[in-house]
Structures are given as C-alpha cells and as structure tokens.
Nucleic acid binder design. Sequence first.
DNA 1: TACAAAAATGATTGCGCTACCATTTGTTGG
DNA 2: CCAACAAATGGTAGCGCAATCATTTTTGTA
Lengths: 347, 347
Amino acid sequence: MQHPPSAAAPTAETASSPSRSVTLKDVARVAGLSPITVSRALNTPQLVRPATVARVREAVELTGYIPNLLAGGLASKRSRLVAAIVPQLFNAMFVETVQGLGDQLAAHGYQLLLSLSGYSPLHEGELVSAILSRKPDGIVLTGINHAAETRKRLLSANIPVVETWDLTPTPIDMLVGFSHQKIGETIARHLYGKGYRRFGLVWADDERAAVRRSGLEAILNEFGTSVIADYIVPTPATLALGRQGLQGLLESGTSFDVIVCSSDALAQGVMTEAQVRGIDVPGELAIMGFGDLDFAAHTVPPISSVHIDKRAIGIQAANALLARIEGRPLQKKIIDVGFELVERQTT
Amino acid sequence: MQHPPSAAAPTAETASSPSRSVTLKDVARVAGLSPITVSRALNTPQLVRPATVARVREAVELTGYIPNLLAGGLASKRSRLVAAIVPQLFNAMFVETVQGLGDQLAAHGYQLLLSLSGYSPLHEGELVSAILSRKPDGIVLTGINHAAETRKRLLSANIPVVETWDLTPTPIDMLVGFSHQKIGETIARHLYGKGYRRFGLVWADDERAAVRRSGLEAILNEFGTSVIADYIVPTPATLALGRQGLQGLLESGTSFDVIVCSSDALAQGVMTEAQVRGIDVPGELAIMGFGDLDFAAHTVPPISSVHIDKRAIGIQAANALLARIEGRPLQKKIIDVGFELVERQTT
DNA sequence: TACAAAAATGATTGCGCTACCATTTGTTGG
DNA sequence: CCAACAAATGGTAGCGCAATCATTTTTGTA
C-alpha cells in the first residue's frame, strides 16, 4: 500500500513542468473538443450530446481534472458557497442547526463556509466583510440583532440572507426561527400552573435568553408574582456554571421552589448541584431547562425543557436559500418552526 | 440610529447601473491612483508610502469596497481558505476541535470551509474533490484511514494536509493526534488494577473506537481475562443508545462488574439506565467513559473518563498548516497531544 | 431531395485581481 | 549639481472559467 517515490503518479500530466494543475483546456485537448464544450458537458450536460459527455467524462478521468471554482465563480458569478455565522459551537444548540444546514446544502451541491462570531456583534461587521469577499451565494445568520453597518453591507451585497433562531416581522431578508418571548411566557404559565411561586433564575448573558426572560417575567407579573433572584452566567453556558448558579442562589439565603435555566446545560448543572446537596428534585426544588438537548430526557430525573427542532432550522434555512438562489418562488419569507414545552420529571 | 429609506446610501456608486459591485478600479479612480497601487496598499502596505495608504483607505471607506477573493485567489494562487472534514458535529468530540481550528485560523486571516463526511470514507473522495476545487491553502482531515483515491488526490493537489484525532508514523503530510491503542491499554490497566474482572462493552461502530478496543483487549488478554460481552451501537453515540446498551447487556443474562464505553455520552446513558434500575454505581457496576466531555465531571457520581485536549488539536492543526503555508520551518510533522485517564467516582 | 428549424459545438471576450517588469520619483554623497 | 541608487508607482498580461454570440451539424417535414 506504500507508493514508491520512484514511480510517478500514473495520472500525472505528461508535461515536464512540476505538476502544473490540469485545466479545462487540458481536458479539451485530450477529448478532442473545445474547452467550452467540456465546460458545458460538466455543468449543463443536457445541452451536450450523450456521446460527447461520455467522451468528456473519460478525459476527466484520464487527466484527473478538478475544476477550479475560483475561476468558475469569477466568470459565472455563482460560487456555490453558502456562509453561516454562528456564535459558537460549544453551545450544542447551534450544532444541530449547522449540521442540518450543511447536510442539506451538500445534498444540493453547495458548500458551507462556517464562521464563529464568538457572540460579539462588533466583530460581526468585519466577519461579514470577510465573508462577502468570497462572494457566497447566500448567508445564514444567527439572531436578528446586527450592527447597522452589517445590515447595510448585506443589503448592498444583494444576496439572499436568512436570519435564524429568533423571530421578527422585519428580517433583513428571510427568517427561520421561533419566538423567545412566547417561550418565556409558556414556561411561566406552565410553572405557575403547577403551583410554583418562588422563582429563581440561572441565566446566560445572551440576548435571546434575555427575551425569554422578559416573556417569563411579563406573565409572572400578570399573575402577581415575580422572579426572586437570578444568577447570571457568561456564555457559553456549561454544567459547571449551572452548579455555581445554584450555589450562588442558595448562598443568598432566599428559598426557591423552582429554578428556571436559560439552557439545559445549566439545568443539568443545577440538578447535579441539588443532588450533591441532597435537595430532592422536584420535591424540594423544581428545575426547568431550555433546548431539549439530547441528554435532557435521559438524566435522573429527566429534565423538563422546551423542545426546538434545531435541525429543522438548518434545513429550512438551506431550503429558503436554495429556492432564492435558484430563482424558485418562495412561499414565506418568515418561517416559525415553533417550540414545544416538554414536561418531564423535574417540574 | 434608523436610516431613513428616502436617503440613498451615501456610499453607493454614482453609476446608474443597478448596483454593479465596486471593484479595485473604482477605488483607484476615486483615490487617483492605479489599481495595482491600491492592491498593494491593501495587501502589502509596507511597499507603499503611508500617505498613499491613507488615501487608499479613505477611498475604500468612501466606496464601500469589498475585495473579491475569487479574483484575488485566482490571480495569486492563495485563497486564504482552509478546509476541514469532520465526520459529524453531533458528536461533541469534534466540536471543540473545529472551534479551536476556526478561532486560530480566523486570528490569522484565514477562513474555514467545513465539510461533514458523515463517517463514510466512500463519500470522502468526492468531498475532497469538491473541496480541492475551491483551491484551499490547506486541509484538515479527521482520522488516518482514507481511500487510496483520496490520498492520491490530496498528494497531487500539493497542499499542506493535517490529519487529526489519530496517530500513525506515516501520515499523508502532517498529523496532530494521539494513540487510541494506548488509551485502550491504559483503560485496561486502570480497571484491572482496581480489581475489575468481568468486562462489558458498550461500543460505537467507529474505526477509532475499534482501535481503542483492540488496545483494551490486548492488555486484558495479557492479564488472562477478556471482554465478556459487547453491545455495538451505531454512530453518533447518544445517551439513549447507552441506555439501550446496558439493557441489552443485562438481558443477555451475564453479570458484569464494569462497563467500558467508547464515549462519555454512552457512559452517561449506561449510568442513567443503571440508576433507573437501582443498580449502584460503582458499587455493583463500574462505568468508564472516553473523551472527558463537559458533563463527565458533573454527573452524580462523576464519570471516570479519558481526557483529550480536543481544542488543542484544532489549534495545533491550524498552527501546523499556517507554518507550512507561510513557509516557516516546521518543528515536527507529527504532534502527539497525548491523553490522560481521569479517575472519578464511577470506577 | 430540399429546406427550415433545432441541436450541438466553437471563438471571442471579460470576470477582478495580482505577478512581473518598466517607469517615475525621491534620496544620498561626491 | 548631478550621478547612482533606492523607493514608489504604473502598464501589461494572464490566472481558469463561463456568458454571449456565431457557426456547424443534425433532425424533421414537405
């Protein structure tokens, strides 16, 4: 299975130059056709006689030709590239969306340029410029709050944009997400309905989480109660921060009957800390998560959470983009994938 | 902070054509310089008078110029793009590596093209071709087992390649990883040393996991014992599969004193199932994971695992690539990031 | 068989940028 | 004050491909 250094690769060009890469012209020469016909045979085979296509395929095989998409993109103004900006990947939330997006794009011959913004909207502007310089056919953003500069650049780039993981009546272009406000409200109603009154929060310092909180508090206020205390953690939220959170809240001396967390990771952390301290969940303390990550259903006891179809967000975003890129009519500019409160055994 | 829709963007081109994008030539005209000088001012400012650079910067600002890297890459043969192929992102293992890689690359002005291979080496060949057609300056691969076709293509593309997450004396080019064999051996010694004799496995159907298993079994054999039974699960490994795994093993009627899992997710699943069934961990049954994911230290009881510096793999891979791209000498072609068995309370 | 229409193929040009070499401008010392 | 050189700027060409229009070949029909 070793390749002896003496034997040159059999498919290498015959030219003496040290491996100048194979171009369309080389394939054309081998196939006895013009370069443009080869180009067509590869990109729009329906415009070329089947026999010719076969001849081209052979020549491609023989030469080991790999098209240069930089050149192709420059000439055709279509890069077959879609860029996505995600705060970070640690946060398992976005991973499924990226995976769905990537899978769906790949299935349609597009590639994914992934950028990690690290939750900093200031940095996002430069990021967008860097991305636009690759001339992507579309862009997927996380969230709806972008610097004015970012919006302007995106708008003037004149390419399809999908914002995700949030909801607004005025997206830059298209949107796939859900209402954080409503989730907060739903959580409040659920917990109040189950009789919980003394609310503690372990909450990430994140803008979408803040919206969920405002929904939660709005309804609690309606019911004449409110959040007693909160413990704010930096992003990305981890189990360790969840444990710290409960610790912090308990040290404040107040007593709670439920801790609401801005993510399942924090919730699991809170639960771990409760167990370590011998606090019965949900008997003495109820816990509520968000995101319905893989583990939420498989802890002991399983964590009540809010399910989001994270993968669907990615797939729908891809579909919206592909439709626009390929000029197909778009049913809706705004897709609400909704959510579902999943009651398990911690509430 | 709103931009009134009446006022046309002040930076828009004066041309009447519907937003033809701004090119280097436009900037040059505005700055009263030749295009090539503008190019230099942006790419190699040290070759241009500071006053001229400033003039160019102004013109860029004024015109809202965004370079076209397709054209730039085509002309210069440097794309400032690095491609990475990862089996999948669900598997939290690779996420940190991708994040480290992305961060480090971004810090050096490179962007990340992410491809998900879905664990299928057959598909990897096409993937590599698709990637090479973007003319990346470097490629990061997961694992060391690649189709012969893939190797050939990579070799003839003549760009730096880093293989990761495994170890071999004969990488395609460079490598950042660790020895799965040794991990298996280390686990076996640890568990045997603690007195465990009746080994059950809940194991993912994954080639690197298979190597860890072979290390484990080799040492167990040396000690005159062996794995009693295994339960093989498909990738990606999830908590639910871990639970199924324990269930499957218990139903076989055999009794175990330790279950070794090919990942922490499976281990947590096994532990959950054990707790649900009232099996004391580690009293009646010990559990061993792999990967030392975030949660491993924060379950009750915390899971013994093998720590891998996953983020470092990404960062070192980026560094190796950057060194080669920028022509700096490379200390080592093979970087072993090692591992560390972390004994917690499940063994 | 002839002729129009359709299908298939080809030639030219330019996408936006940088490499390469040529030219101009500025600087130094005799 | 002017060589002699370095620093700064410019002109030309071409990276590899596809859009556009032109030409050739094939097909169907009277």
